[in-house]
Amino acid sequence: MPVKNNDVRIKAENVDFYYGTHKAIKNISIDFYNDKVTAFIGPSGCGKSTFIRLLNRMNDLIANAKACGSIYLDGENILSPKADVVKIRRKIGMVFQKPNPFPKSIWQNISYGLEIQGEKDKKKIEAVVEDSLRKAALWNEVKDRLRDNALKLSGGQQQRLCIARCLAVDPEVILFDEPCASLDPISTNKIEDLILELKKNYTIAIVTHNMQQAARVSDFTAFMYLGELIEFGVTSQIFTVPKEKKTEEYLSGKFG
């Protein structure tokens, strides 16, 4: 898969991250390419979730945590203290491990992102709600009950709602943090199809503990172990001829 340098959307350089004195991310440098899916795999606690949460500064919420290094998006360093966190999070959307719809109606969940940006135009909001739900392959299931509480949806529907909610803000990048961890196989399938559809227009990073999932949806795969990036490359190569011994051991189920 040929990749040109100007296709790089996010560039992380020498990123370290500390919880108090514990170093959870050790000197990671990695590129995320335009309209490609990058999967992060590795045993639990290897730092893969922690790392992608650095990309939209969600780790700011943790007390006593500290990040070093730089992550560039459109030439701006996300990790810089001067960076506008709100702007970054609008550019980089996130879908969480457990579906987390607001306890509001389906409609209000989707329109939330626009409302906080001060959008008042009813017509526009209406258009975005429908468009986002269609993109998230949920429109047909919910179009007749947009005023229902989102918590009434099934787990899989809730997760697609969260994806739609994220799309409504029109991000450039979407981070998926183990999006299928709490879903059944059928819902998982739907989400995976959706990710393949979305990568036509969005740069995507996905954390997963499911190696098959990584193989199915991603173009690039990063294998992390104990906070270090052990190997990064094209997915087909990582899964067939890994360069590192650790990667091979993990993929063959020797640990993790």
Partner: peptide
Amino acid sequence: EASLALGAT
């Protein structure tokens, strides 16, 4: 988390 990730202050 969801709200902050959508760019809310």
